[in-house]
């Protein structure tokens, strides 16, 4: 028989109980003389049921939380360490490599000018999450004078931590109203707003063209340096009439 450990300390019934004829109250008054083996059993059973009910609930809830945790870690953890703000299309995962359709990365350069990098597809290895291999790249970099420089390239490597991107394959950098630069490779440093290319480069400007072996654009367009066999053609303004300029683009 379960020994009622704490000894049911039944309170003497208040008259109110008595009236409603609770069976519980009246027999214990009369049978109080002996500690009946059943006396505590009822409450013990009650406690037991309560405990069982609690455990059952706890197990359910615990299982749900565990599943949520595992899912969370599995699904979101690799993305959590991606560059700040990235929006992605369809995602496919194989091994540690995630291929992302039409990724779009936006960020801000040190002085607050925006930049945005879009691509046809991006490949990321979860072991090096801040490196994105992009193909079919279109980037837009806000310049100091609020004009935007657009950059396109066949493919490139975007490093989120250093905010740098190296581009390869018919790289084109152009500013609608200023210049149109063509080269094979280029490295863009978004934070410093600089762009460097150590492959032959050709530039079409409004008033002429420049070609050289290397090019280095510093602090977002304030200084542009060309090196190695620099050839530049400056269209002389047509004599006499000052106003007309001859921005004829002559393909070199």
């Amino acid at each position: 028989m379960t020994k009622a450990s704490d000894g049911a300390d039944w309170r003497p019934d208040s008259p109110r109980d008595g009236q409603n004829g609770g069976l519980r109250g009246r027999p214990s008054d009369r049978l109080d003389l002996t500690t009946s083996p059943w006396r505590g059993a009822f409450t013990a059973a009650g406690k037991h049921t309560a405990r069982v009910r609690f455990l059952r609930g706890a197990m359910l809830v615990g299982a749900a939380i565990a599943i949520a945790l595992i899912l969370g870690v599995a699904l979101f953890d690799p993305f959590r360490r991606l560059p700040r703000n990235i929006s992605i299309g369809q995602v496919s995962v194989n091994g540690t490599q995630i291929t992302v359709e039409s990724p779009k990365i936006t960020g801000y350069q040190t002085d607050g000018r925006p930049y945005e990098v879009k691509a046809r597809s991006g490949l990321q290895d979860t072991t090096t999450p801040s490196i994105l291999e992009l193909s079919g790249i279109e980037a837009k970099i806000g310049m100091v004078d609020a004009s935007t420089v657009e950059v396109t390239a066949a493919h490139g490597l975007y490093d989120g931590t250093q905010q740098k991107m190296t581009l390869q394959g018919d790289v084109r950098i152009w500013n609608r109203i200023g210049y149109d630069i063509r080269t094979k490779t280029a490295t863009v440093d978004f934070e410093r707003g600089s762009l460097m290319s150590d492959e032959p480069v050709s530039v079409i400007l409004n008033g002429g063209t420049i070609s050289a072996n290397q090019m280095d654009i510093r602090d977002s367009g304030r200084k542009v340096s060309f090196e190695g066999a620099v050839k530049s053609l400056i269209e002389a303004d047509s004599a006499g009439t000052e106003s007309t300029d001859a921005p004829a683009h002559r393909e070199k």
Partner: peptide, 14 residues
């Protein structure tokens, strides 16, 4: 002055 000016050099800074 109708002719364009061709300038060649080792280095150009703009």
């Amino acid at each position: 002055s109708k002719e364009p000016i061709n300038v060649e050099a080792a280095k150009l800074d703009y």
